[in-house]
């Protein structure tokens, strides 16, 4: 199988990048698909990266205390009610309690912004609120503040099914995202689909490929030793096949996020997840 061989080649390269820390990892055990913890993350033919996680990694995600992502979430909880900027406002001034105002909202992102008529992620919207409504500086995409706030907002949709709209004004973005997903790129000439659709469940080196679902982001990744965004993961997957990555927040990655969320429609949001 030609693609599989290319994949293994991809991972001989990626191995240097990703697995330097733990080459002596034991063979991943096949998940017990009847385990209720795993079952929550399988819907029909779809499953999230949680399912291919090692049981030890799942234990950490399942305990909000042990999950290091909550160090960022807790920081965001204090930022939520802290006034910042010329308007003298905090998130709380307009949105009150996030557990109420943000409940379920991120499950339908990215979405078309009503006034701006363009496709935006949760992170873009947070920066619109900061720049236009609070009159303060936007947060950098991969900053602790943005990652924590994104996690705080997204976790208000935990266990709710992803439900993005890809029709109407969102349609051209969706088409663009789909095109990106099937486009071969990089020196290894691979598309997202070759790994995450054709080969999910297959083991390459010590890593087991999942369907590459976006439902757990921002995610605490052991390799990063910190919280990281979905667009950072896109960059990683682009670099592993030696393709030029885009910047976080670009229209390309935003459209790709919409396509991935559409693939995930029906799966529960699990932000902030924990991954290897």
């Amino acid at each position: 199988m030609k693609i599989y061989q290319t994949l293994v080649a991809a991972f001989s390269v990626a191995a240097v990048l990703s697995f330097a820390a733990g080459s002596a990892v034991a063979e991943p055990k096949d998940p017990d698909l009847t385990d209720p913890r795993v079952k929550r993350y399988i819907v029909g033919e779809k499953y999230s990266g949680y399912v291919v996680n090692e049981p030890e990694t799942r234990d950490i995600q399942d305990d909000d205390f042990q999950n290091p992502a909550f160090l960022w979430v807790e920081q965001a909880q204090s930022l939520w009610s802290k006034a910042d900027g010329k308007a003298g406002k905090s998130c709380e001034s307009c949105h009150g309690n996030p557990e109420v105002s943000m409940k379920g909202s991120s499950a339908s992102y990215p979405k078309i912004h009503k006034k701006k008529k363009t496709l935006l992620t949760v992170e873009h919207q947070i920066n619109i609120c900061r720049e236009e409504y609070m009159k303060t500086k936007p947060w950098k995409w991969e900053s602790d503040q943005m990652l924590g706030m994104s996690a705080l907002v997204r976790m208000q949709s935990r266990d709710m099914p992803v439900n993005v709209n890809v029709g109407g004004e969102a349609k051209p973005y969706f088409e663009k995202g789909r095109e990106f997903y099937f486009q071969r790129r990089g020196q290894l000439d691979l598309a997202c689909t070759h790994c995450h659709v054709d080969n999910h469940g297959n083991k390459v080196r010590s890593e087991k490929l999942s369907q590459g679902m976006p439902t757990g982001f921002p995610t605490y990744r052991m390799k990063w030793q910190k919280l990281g965004s979905l667009h950072r993961r896109f960059r990683g997957c682009n670099k592993n096949i030696r393709a030029q990555p885009y910047k976080q927040g670009t229209p390309e990655y935003t459209a790709l996020e919409l396509y991935l969320m559409w693939r995930a429609n029906g799966l529960p949001v699990e932000s902030p997840s924990v991954r290897k």
């Binding site: 205390f65 042990q66 160090l71 960022w72 807790e74 204090s78 602790d144 030793q225």
Partner: peptide, 30 residues
Amino acid sequence: MAKKPRIKTPATAKQGEVFQVKTIVSHKME
């Protein structure tokens, strides 16, 4: 604003009770 350590202890306990303490602290561990 730095990330604060997270600590879980009970606010009240019975005399002689053995309770679990959980801690997680933000550090790079370079």
